[in-house]
Design a protein around this nucleic acid. Structure first.
Lengths: 227, 227
DNA sequence: GTCTATACGTTGATAGAC
DNA sequence: GTCTATCAACGTATAGAC
């Protein structure tokens, strides 16, 4: 992985740590709104309650901020595949991962949009991550799923395309939120909408893997209280 | 729908028509690469083989070009739902639509990316279209699907979420192409990749609707010759 | 009708003040 | 160590030339 995407070392005084955290939080919102080019240092500074020049003091360039935001997001993304193991129950493991991914989408939609924008425009910053770390992780998990298929525990599905589908189905509720809201006639997506979406995606993917018997909506309700 | 998104009237001399077409084609590529903010008039002009100022002559502002590009794309998007009718065979109708959407994704990935970028950033230009024309169309088709469900022809699935899923599953191969390529270890997506993806998405969605019996890959091969 | 030289505003970054 | 006044470059749009 490129050094550029490693987490910055948490050195510096108390003021620095606090200001940098504020800048990163603000930047995630601003980048989510307009992408890298659409975001200006003035926007980020205002959102963080600082002057433009002061932001330049803590992070040298706009690209530095952008990379730091992406690094935060990627760390978040990777942490949820751990239950997909050879010995696990496929239905339980997949359900857990789908729910986790959907919860992440509901709780951090801006993070999802920053990531989507980056990949949409050719992943100039995280291309190496996608071809390296992520590819290895997916290959490893795909092997697990292939094992399930060979032992007849789930239907024959291309595991890599299954991951692609899973991410598309969940992240679309953050990335295309405006369109989803328009179609559902909602001003914004609430807890009830996400519970319904989760049940829908679970049904689709589990049935797609030959794991019949839809999910009862009560299962979902427990995990996703109103936001 | 906003006047801004109607097609421009095709008046003007031969030179104008030809230059405008060249600009729009170039602009779609440039907007796909960097979004609205990421695209500059210089980029568009160079890609079209004109001077920056000359582009300003044919289209007043960058926003005018952007809206014209979006109008082209939306016209493309809407034309494929016509087989979803109350009397149709659900399996046949859905398969046809999924294949058509996937073919569109394969043939016009830049168009998909321009649309994705627009929605990702809050749909500032096509918001009214999404809440108006598109919502009405989806409501109409959703009613058809509800009818199929009531008559027991397909499993109980939320029709609006089904459309959301269908779009997510197909468009992800254009919008997140870089990521897909990284995971598949390909430099770019070719005809074989798209055939495999189509078969996968068909299986997932048809099984999700309780329409069992996966699609044979030969069915797909006929419709998607190598690009 | 077609194309170009020019002006104006914004943006990212730095040299310098506290 | 923290913050700000200033600069150089870029990008859009228009007034004007052919």
């Amino acid at each position: 992985m490129r050094a550029a995407l490693q987490d910055r070392e948490p050195g510096g005084g108390r003021i620095r740590q606090q200001q940098e955290a504020a800048i990163l939080e603000a930047a995630e919102r601003v980048f989510a709104r307009g992408g890298f080019q659409g975001a200006t240092m003035v926007d980020i500074a205002q959102e963080a309650g600082l002057s433009k020049s002061n932001v330049h003091y803590y992070f040298g360039t706009k690209a530095d901020i952008y990379r730091a935001v992406l690094a935060n997001i990627l760390r978040l993304w990777l942490a949820e595949t751990d239950r997909i193991t050879p010995g696990a129950d496929p239905r339980e493991a997949l359900s857990h991962y789908i729910r986790a991914k959907m919860r992440l989408t509901a709780e951090r939609p801006e993070a999802s949009r920053v990531f989507a924008n980056e990949v949409l425009h050719g992943a100039p910053e995280i291309g190496d991550f996608l071809r390296g770390t992520l590819r290895r992780l997916v290959a490893e998990k795909a092997a697990v799923i292939e094992g399930w298929i060979e032992r007849g525990r789930i239907a024959a599905v291309d595991p890599v395309h299954l991951f692609i589908s899973l991410w598309a189905l969940t992240q679309t509720y953050a990335d295309f939120e405006v369109q989803v809201c328009a179609l559902l006639g909602r001003p914004a997506l609430g807890g009830a909408d996400y519970r319904r979406a989760t049940a829908h995606v679970l049904n689709l993917l589990l049935r797609g893997c030959g794991l019949d018997g839809g999910v009862v909506s009560e299962d979902v309700r427990k995990e996703m209280p109103d936001a």
